[in-house]
Design a protein around this nucleic acid. Structure first.
Length: 889
RNA sequence: AGAUCCGUAGCUCAGCCUGGUUAGAGCACUACACUGAUAAUGUAGGGGUCAGCAGUUCAAAUCUGCUCGGGUCUACCA
């Protein structure tokens, strides 16, 4: 453009890269390095202290106008002279301003320095403009000869030398001295470091072999869309983006250990061969020896040449493989290229490499395809033809660009196929503070020690149920303890409870299984819940959601089985004869336990097996030696009764409400109460409740449950909008209607219920409100102690009549005697004789419930007496009585 | 820097996809109760600006955008 710019400001954080070929890339130039007060300042006086530099705007132009502008080399040396550059890259035109979009004006001056040999972006733009490439740093990390005083110095401290002087500082000093540095300052920035030694890494331009994966990018993207990713976002986001921006797969590795790249080429690189099989290599080796080349001791004309060649071929690792010299078509020697194959290639080739190549010479199956490949091996009995693609694989999310990619790439390349249908990309196990576990930081939890102290199953259960596999897990031993106590403890307790009574009664599931219809409702309920559980757990497992599956099992064991079924059924196990009802209880609980251990077996392989074996040892229902040899449970929908499960939920809620009312008025559960009142909003609800009212009565110790029908004006109701139904209809008027409804009188609610609709005036407009657009629930029953949850409201009659009080005394008494029995170490079945000395009131109470008491405490006699020998003092409802309990016989 | 996940009670997590008016559970804590499953159990209580800001909407933990904080990956460790 004819103008000459004296200086351009350039920012770099790595001065050492300045030395080779200093070129600049600009997108725009901004004056942010100059303070406003310096504009048109005194150009003869520069105040170094205030850093106010005089400056003046001469002209404005965009960075693109500087494109191709030549500039004076910053640090000219012998080794980076234009002549040397020309000799390395003929026709190169260095020292020009280049443009690229990766430079922004947000940081620095908008001009950066680029070194094509030291980074991918730099390399790309350098290549585009043809500025040549220079490597002034050798493979040890030192400057090469010919860069003046810097020659031979390490650009970073690679030897951990105490005397190391940062060459970058010296370069900065030199630039400063030559008045070529505008400002030098310390700056913290990210620099890549070796993951193992923490030493700084240098980018280095090397020749490499690539697989042209970009050629099949579209195919890989399309195939990826058919893979079921867990979680989805990793497949669409992290992996999807990765594929969209994929570059060719660099197959070369410059290491010692690994698979040698099977390519031999002539020194000038004009002829080369890629060996596919050992047989081919053998053939080529023979040819080469024949042509007069010597590979190790394989020489033409030797008697035992075949043996020598076999010996050489028997180990194709480095360094032996590099002794093999092949011959090119034109008769030149070919040496193996020094590179190794990326180990990730091996991992990605796993599905096929593990079976080996088929014998393609017969061409039995036509061209190579996944079908043919696995067909071939299937015929040889090695593997099923359906073995590919894999149903699912799982690995850490850090494998997205590793194993997940290589499997996908190779399957796409070879067979136009996915390598796996589902992939679970696990999150990481972090320490309890959310940091990655690292040996260096010492925050690693030793898995073997954890398993030693808490058991593999508790550890597994914790890992699986605490967080979805793809979420990171904050590992905390407290969580394992909780699992032990909460889940395994409860399950084992339940089993022990079962075993205790099953042993007493000699239950071994020898009776025919009682048909469902003949089992009591509570048994049908737990079995219904059990089969619903099987359904849900199976669905979760099929959806690769083991966390959901585990949590469902946990919830069932704790909430339904232990704290409801067993608690409510306890009496059935210890009371009475070995009747049909008792057998039903045993069978039902047994079936639950047996199914649970089968369901949990994949997550908890040892505990489930132990429990299964204990159960099965008695009943012999299975001939299998292990729970893992038994099929996974299959839900039988004929067991599932949704209405039953719903009403049991009602029973649980109602009981919980009554118990909370008892608590509120401080009447203990052992004190019987007369009645509970439940308003029912519709006939279905009443039917549902009536069918489980015996359970509620027993659970909360009340004599009767009464129902108040919906039209009973006794109940106070409340109304609120059904937001989902009304929202669409009303839109902005929603608020007004909501306010209106909250002000509804009991009469208005009753009117709406009766008519099914009601006319309203909302913001001056008429509106017909339908019953279905509202939600009505009972709020209060005046004069009663009430509690509510959702649509359910219960009221409790808290009057304790003398009769009820007497029964309460009797129950207290039973409880005390049971404790004495237990303390005395009596067997569950021991009969006893009881003598009591009590105040008159209590004596009357106990006497009137004598049959009940004797039945409960297995007493053959209950006598009231004033003269007693060995006595125990007990307290019942703040009154003291004396008792004597002796074992009969 | 880019990509992605996460952020809800002291702790671990549900709820979010598909917006609906008192945001749940377990643990821990406190109190009370229960006691032939007892190293178990029940009931109740305290504890939340749903990371923050803005937007969309009659209505936002939920949808959108931005910001902050944390994790992970970004091409020669496996």
């Amino acid at each position: 453009m004819g103008a000459s710019i004296e200086y351009a400001l350039v920012q770099t954080v790595n001065p050492y890269t300045q030395v080779p070929v200093n070129v600049v890339v600009a997108t725009s130039l901004i004056g942010k390095y100059f303070k406003p007060e310096g504009e048109n300042g005194d150009f003869t006086v520069i105040d170094e202290k205030t850093k106010v530099f005089p400056w003046r705007i001469i002209t404005r132009f965009s960075g693109s106008q500087l494109e191709e502008a030549e500039y004076e080399q910053l640090l000219p040396f012998e080794a980076n002279s234009p002549a040397v550059i020309e000799s390395i890259t003929p026709g190169a035109k260095p020292f020009r301003v280049l443009l690229d979009s990766f430079v922004t004006t947000e940081d620095g001056t908008g001009i950066v320095h680029t070194a094509p040999a030291f980074g991918a972006d730099d390399y790309k733009v350098g290549k585009k403009y043809g500025i040549g490439i220079l490597t002034l740093v050798d493979r040890e990390g030192k400057f090469v000869e010919g860069v003046g005083e810097f020659s031979g110095r390490y650009v970073k401290d690679y030897k951990s030398q105490e005397s190391y002087v940062d060459v970058n500082v010296d370069i900065a000093v030199k630039l400063k001295k030559e008045n070529r540095a505008f400002r030098v300052e310390k700056y913290q920035h990210n620099y890549p470091h070796c993951w193992r030694t923490d030493k700084p890494i240098l980018y280095y331009p090397l020749d490499a072999w690539f697989i042209s994966t970009t050629a099949i990018r579209d195919k890989m993207v399309a195939l990826n869309k058919t893979i079921n990713w867990k979680p989805k976002s990793t497949g669409e986001g992290r992996f999807g983006n990765w594929l969209e921006n994929m570059v060719d797969w660099n197959l070369s590795r410059s290491r010692y250990w690994g698979t040698p790249l099977p390519i031999w080429r002539t020194e000038d690189g004009t002829e080369q061969i890629c060996i596919g099989t050992i047989a081919q290599l053998r053939e080529e080796l023979h040819k080469s020896v024949e042509a007069g080349f010597v590979s190790r001791d394989c020489k033409k004309g030797q008697a035992d040449l075949p043996q020598k060649i076999e010996k050489l071929l028997s180990d194709l690792h480095k360094p032996f493989v590099d002794e093999i010299i092949l011959v090119s078509p034109s008769g030149k020697p070919m040496h193996r290229v020094p590179d190794l194959i990326d180990v990730w290639f091996d991992s990605g080739a796993m599905p096929y490499a593990q079976w080996g190549l088929p014998d393609t010479s017969s061409n039995q199956f036509g061209p190579l395809s996944s079908e043919n490949f696995f067909q071939y091996h299937a015929l040889n009995g090695k593997v099923s033809a359906q073995a590919f693609p894999a149903s699912f694989i799982a690995e850490g999310v850090d494998q997205t660009r590793g194993w997940f990619y290589t499997l996908h790439a190779i399957a796409s390349l070879l067979f136009d196929s996915v390598a796996y249908q589902t992939v679970v990309s696990n999150g990481l196990v972090l320490d309890k503070n959310g940091n990655k576990m690292s040996k260096r930081l010492g925050n690693v939890v030793d898995p073997f020690q954890t398993i030693e102290s808490f058991g593999a199953d508790a550890t597994r259960w914790y890992l699986i149920t605490n967080a979805s596999p793809w979420d990171n897990l904050k590992f905390d031993l407290e969580g394992i303890k909780e699992v032990q106590r909460k889940f395994f403890g409860t399950l084992y307790n339940t089993y022990q409870f079962f075993a205790l009574y099953a042993n007493v009664d000699g239950f071994s599931y020898k009776e025919t299984s009682i048909v469902l219809a003949q089992r009591p409702e509570i048994d049908r309920w737990i079995l219904s819940s059990l089969h619903t559980l099987i359904q849900k757990v199976t669905a979760a497992m099929d959806d690769y959601e083991p966390t959901q599956a585990g949590r469902l099992i946990e919830d069932f064991v704790d909430q339904q089985l232990s704290n409801w079924y067993v608690r409510l059924c306890r009496r059935r196990f210890w009371k009475g004869e070995y009747s049909a009802d008792k057998i039903s209880a045993y069978q039902t609980l047994y079936e639950c336990l047996e199914t649970i251990v089968r369901l949990m077996a994949p997550i908890s392989p040892f505990f489930s097996d132990a429990l299964f074996l204990q159960l099965n040892a008695v009943t012999g229902r299975y001939t299998a030696e292990s729970v893992h040899h038994v099929n996974y449970p299959v839900a039988d929908s004929s067991f599932i009764d949704q209405a039953l499960e719903e009403r049991m939920q009602l029973a649980q809620d109602a009981s919980s409400l009554v118990l909370s009312l008892r608590k509120k008025v401080n009447i203990k559960v052992r004190q019987p109460l007369q009645r509970v009142l439940i308003p029912v909003l519709d006939p279905v609800m009443q039917t549902q409740l009536q069918r489980i009212e015996d359970l509620i009565k027993a659970e909360v110790n009340v004599k009767s449950i009464e129902y108040l029908s919906a039209d009973n004006t006794f109940i106070k109701k409340k109304i609120k909008p059904n937001f989902i139904a009304l929202g669409k209809k009303l839109g902005a008027k929603m608020k007004a209607v909501s306010t209106l409804l909250s002000g509804f009188s009991q009469d208005q609610i009753a009117m709406l219920e009766k008519e099914g609709q009601i006319n309203l005036q909302v913001e001056g407009e008429a509106l017909v409100l339908q019953l279905a657009e509202t939600e009505i629930s009972s709020e209060d029953i005046p004069g009663w102690t009430v509690a509510g949850k959702g649509k359910l409201t219960v009221a409790l009659d808290i009057t304790v009549t003398p009769e009820l009080e007497a029964e309460g005394h009797a129950r207290e008494f039973v409880n005390r005697i049971q404790k004495i029995r237990k303390d005395a170490g009596f067997e569950l079945t021991d009969r006893v004789l009881v003598k009591v000395q009590a105040p008159a009131g209590l004596t009357n109470s106990l006497a009137s419930f004598k049959t009940y008491i004797c039945d409960e405490i297995l007493a053959d006699s209950l006598e009231f007496s004033n003269e007693m020998a060995a006595i125990t003092t007990i307290e019942i409802n703040e009154e003291t009585i004396q008792v004597q309990v002796t074992k009969k016989g």
